[in-house]
Design a protein around this nucleic acid. Structure first.
Lengths: 212, 212
DNA sequence: GAAGTAAATATGTTTATGCATATAGATTCA
DNA sequence: TGAATCTATATGCATAAACATATTTACTTC
């Protein structure tokens, strides 16, 4: 079950889940970025102090669990972690919906391929499972459209919308976001297995497994 | 908080709990005894592969637990720990019972203070909680009486028992074991807190009381 | 789109340290 | 005391960790 590679993988997902770069993590732990890279790729058999340092920063703790307690413990761990980023996913979907709405409003006012594409993509990404490793990227792109999201939607404020669209950088931001979201969608299509793996079983409450 | 030293301490207690020597553990893990010594004394910052190897042999597994899940996980581990060596405790009790029975048979055949004392002690130790750190000692003493345990009990085989008792070393072995078990009992009486700390999983009663 | 730019990640190289082999000290029991 | 067993120390070798650099990836600009 727990090989060195498994722990390494856990560390990487824990890091990316928090939107940290290897360099940022290195800053927090005192470990050089290069070493973190090797650890995560499984190229080294890291020392316990390194593991503990990484764990601490990632809000994790190293534990020796009796085999008998493993099912129960794993169940708890599984149920705590997802609930934490459930809110994250909800926020992302909410933002994607707002962007889709906004983009369509922009299309009505001033049709453009970029706005249409952005609307399509934002809608599409709400319907598929976004791989864990793509989450941060999507969030980043969405974040860059914060200004756009804050625009008024109501038809009564069409004038305000038009005014905003004339501001510099808005159109390029939409274009950039559309490109990024398009890339993510391509990745998902290209690697469907990854997307499948991202799906959370959520309820696998296997208590009581007497075996050793 | 898990520091390297904490893990090291956990490993040592896990080993002694199972009555393993450093050499025996080294044999099972492939690690040299000398290195296990250093690990347990906190002299080295062991590598993850070593930790995992040690854990596996000790019926443990390494896990990265979210801080949020720590209380629940630790609670599970605490409550599971005693039952983890239930098998070991059961074996020990079984052996103690056999020794008590056999000693009484010996007393009937050839009364001696040592045999009586051994019977009393073996019986007594089945009724008290043996501190973890005394387990190995008791097991060792019990193990030295292996031959005695294997003797036939039935009255029809009294002759075989008598024959065995005439063999050299048997009486001294009984005496030695009685002394060791007596020491353990004294320790338990002297340090009741330690005994209390060990959770008592009721008495594992075996049938087969063929003593009239 | 394509090229440029900056960030993030991966790859060499040196140094410090874990791990393997052998040996010595410490403790227990007869 | 002497034998046996458990634990700790000494030395060579493999490699994790630190430092420096290269490469890839992702975003911006034309």
């Amino acid at each position: 079950m727990s090989a060195v590679g498994d722990i390494a993988k856990s560390l990487r997902t824990a890091r990316t889940d928090r939107g940290l770069s290897q360099a940022a993590l290195g800053e927090l732990t005192g470990l050089p970025q290069s070493h973190i890279s090797k650890i995560e790729s499984g190229a080294v058999d890291l020392q316990l102090s390194s593991l503990i340092a990484l764990a601490r920063v990632l809000d994790l703790d190293v534990r020796l669990v009796p085999r008998k307690a493993l099912p129960a413990v794993d169940s708890i761990v599984r149920t705590t972690a997802p609930s934490a980023d459930t809110g994250r996913l909800a926020r992302l979907h909410d933002n994607l919906r707002r962007i889709a709405d906004m983009s369509r409003a922009v299309v009505r006012l001033d049709p453009s391929p970029d706005a249409e594409r952005l609307a399509d993509l934002a809608t599409h990404l709400q319907t598929v499972t976004i791989p864990r490793e793509a989450m941060a990227r999507v969030e980043k792109a969405v974040d860059r459209l914060r200004l756009l999201q804050r625009l008024p939607l109501a038809t009564a404020n069409a004038e305000a919308l038009a005014r905003h669209m004339r501001e510099p950088g808005v159109k390029t931001a939409m274009r950039s976001a559309a490109r990024t979201l398009g890339d993510v969608r391509s990745d998902i299509v290209r690697h469907p297995a990854v997307a499948e793996a991202a799906i959370r079983p959520a309820y696998t409450l296997d208590e009581e497994e007497d075996d050793a």
